[in-house]
Design a protein around this nucleic acid. Structure first.
Length: 555
RNA sequence: UGUCCCAUAGUAUAAAGGUAGUACGACAGAUUUUGAUUCUGUUUGUCGAGGUUCGAAUCCUCGUGGGACAACCA
């Protein structure tokens, strides 16, 4: 068996295990519940859960809920749904807020060690004293407070004696440290805000740097994996763990996953939602997991995508076409084939007379495969009649060379039915084509063709008297440019105004019973999936992705 | 004019000092009752300059380019 090469994190883990550093590895997926999960999170989820699965161990789901003003239970629920949907099971469901007591104790410990102090300065003053990346900062005048005074003030902060912003607790490290994060970072701030889980029990909340690593340590996370922007935090992460003398979790960073023709930061996605450029977090155009789910992507295809893309430490923008290739590959195996006409052109088969044994009025029932790539050979019945719709684009009055479809005097096969010939083009007074009059070749019945005629093209069709209708939502890329965030100006200037097109289509009647959570391939058109807004009376389908189309229109 | 991270086909990712490979894309052809699928083939790459070495994508130095860092966000 061929061994797949390891990525750099897998290599680290393998070495750690070989060296006996850990008996078993523990990872965690630590979202802040302040938005919906997107494809970047999917990468992180696949990585973290994949690692513990591969090397033995487990993964916790931990909500990094240390900022009560941005976090909501709605987000917690959606995050859990998304992780489950992707196919992963966490060992423990945990919250940073579970550790507020412990964290408070850690802070007291540092004060007692003379490694933390209460600062009364305003945020402005502190920012000024902090210096810049090239200039050292200066010590706060409160830096030398006694341990006793710090202890008392910190307790008073907790006891709601002060207003927001009046005081903070800072680590005492080094105001001229080359790493800005080591210049006495704030550990606790006062926020008289309602927390989604702890309610009003607290009015001081730890900041990321005094919560994340500590939570990792409490859970004995062995490999704490995050994205590259946290590289400068690692030094502080290690400092707190060392001074607190707690379990030495280790942080490793990889490059955030970007996708072409979209944006991938919660802040930007939130803007798209709030400013109504899309219809909510699960709008099928969004790169959110819930958006992809609603659009008809499968968890398998997203996992496959994450797998194929891999991880590394350099900035990247993955090709949307790879994601699309992944869904197509998965859906090609699973999707039921159906015929749907999106831009109808009426044809009348002048010489067609329904057989006497016909089970449908004015026509006959034909049996057509559900999925030719499948050896189950399931099929459904499709009514055929004298009046049909075909796609407008499947007919050209003056066809170029290599046009395999219908044209005056030309022949095509109707999928699963007969070969027809176009005899006459009917136009209205304005010269628009309103109808085609065709004749069928009697011996050309699908499956037992005795006509001896070979045609180059096969097109799909729908019987007009039997057709059902549905709304089709056709999605295109959300942005006009590959990497909207690296363009000049506001990323929203690059929104694709045509990212959603809504049409009414004519469907073969079997689709009246279309099921939710089922992918259909509308033959020659793409993969479709019932939307959550669909009803019995009005069917609504989302186009998951088009079929690959190598037909080059000569125009 | 600081510190840190990064640099391999168009994109993404391998090659742990020893033949630069894979996937997607693009292009061409075969098959096809979906111009789909499937199959075959083609295309394109180690940021630059030095150094170490029998041998460098890999190690070192200096450049160049991109990114991160000055929130009481995460």
């Amino acid at each position: 068996m061929e061994e797949k090469s390891l990525n750099f994190i897998e290599e680290i883990i393998e070495e750690d295990l070989k060296a006996g550093k850990y008996k078993t590895i523990v990872t965690r997926f630590p979202p802040e519940p302040n938005g919906y999960l997107h494809m970047g999170h999917a990468t992180s989820i696949c990585l973290n859960f994949g690692l513990s699965k591969k090397f033995g161990g487990y993964t916790n789901l931990r909500f990094d809920d240390t900022n009560p003003v941005t976090e909501e239970t709605e987000y917690v629920e959606s995050i859990k749904d998304d992780v489950r949907w992707l196919g992963f099971e966490w060992k423990n469901e945990l919250y940073a807020s579970d550790y507020f007591d412990t964290l408070y104790g850690f802070a007291v410990k540092l004060i007692n060690k003379g490694l933390a102090y209460v600062d009364d300065n305003s945020a402005d003053v502190m920012a000024k004293e902090k210096g810049t990346p090239t200039e050292p900062g200066v010590d706060s005048k409160f830096r030398s407070r006694s341990i006793k005074e710090n202890l008392q003030l910190f307790e008073e902060m907790k006891a709601a004696k002060y207003k927001d912003g009046e005081r903070v607790l800072r680590a005492k490290i080094d105001m001229s440290h080359v790493n800005m994060l080591m210049r006495d970072p704030v550990m606790y701030r006062i926020k008289h805000a309602h927390h989604h889980r702890t309610g009003d029990a607290w009015c001081i909340y730890p900041l990321y740097d005094f919560a994340h690593g500590q939570s990792d340590s409490i859970e004995e996370v062995t490999h704490s994996i995050c994205t590259l922007e946290f590289v400068p935090h690692r030094e502080l992460y290690d400092w707190f763990i060392e001074k607190l003398e707690i379990f030495p979790s280790k942080q490793y960073e990889f490059a955030r996953r970007n996708l072409s023709y979209t944006v991938m930061s919660k802040r930007k996605l939130l803007q798209l939602v709030n400013e109504k450029h899309v219809n909510g977090w699960d709008d099928p155009r969004m790169p959110t997991i819930s958006g992809y789910r609603r659009r008809g992507y499968t968890p398998e295809s997203i996992r496959d995508f994450c797998d194929r893309v891999g991880i590394a430490k350099r900035d990247n923008v993955s090709d949307l076409s790879l994601l699309e290739a992944c869904v197509r590959e998965d859906l090609n195996k699973k999707a039921l084939r159906r015929m749907v006409v999106m831009e109808p052109l009426k044809i009348v088969i002048t010489n067609y007379v329904s057989s006497e044994s016909s089970v449908v009025s004015g026509g006959e029932m034909l049996e057509i495969d559900d999925n030719p790539t499948d050896d189950k050979n399931d099929a459904r019945k499709v009514p055929f009649s004298k009046e049909l719709y075909i796609e407008q684009e499947d007919f050209m009055e003056n066809p170029p060379k290599k046009f395999f479809r219908l044209f005056p005097g030309g022949m095509v096969r109707l999928k699963g039915a007969y070969i027809i010939k176009c005899d006459e083009v009917v136009k209205d007074a304005a010269g628009n084509i309103t109808e085609l009059r065709c004749s069928y070749i009697p011996g050309s019945h699908s499956g037992n063709d005795t006509s001896g005629i070979k045609v180059k093209g096969t097109i799909h069709w729908v019987s007009i008297p039997h057709a059902a209708t549905a709304e089709l939502r056709l999605y295109d890329r959300l942005f006009k440019v590959e990497d909207p965030q690296s363009e000049e100006g506001d990323f929203k200037d690059y929104i694709n105004p045509d990212s959603l097109q809504i049409i009414t289509a004519y469907m073969e009647p079997s689709l009246k019973d279309a099921q939710p959570n089922t992918s259909y391939q509308f033959i020659r058109k793409g993969y479709f999936y019932l939307d959550k807004e669909s009803t019995k009376e009005k069917l609504v389908f989302n186009r998951t992705v088009t079929l690959k189309d190598s037909f080059k229109s000569p125009l």
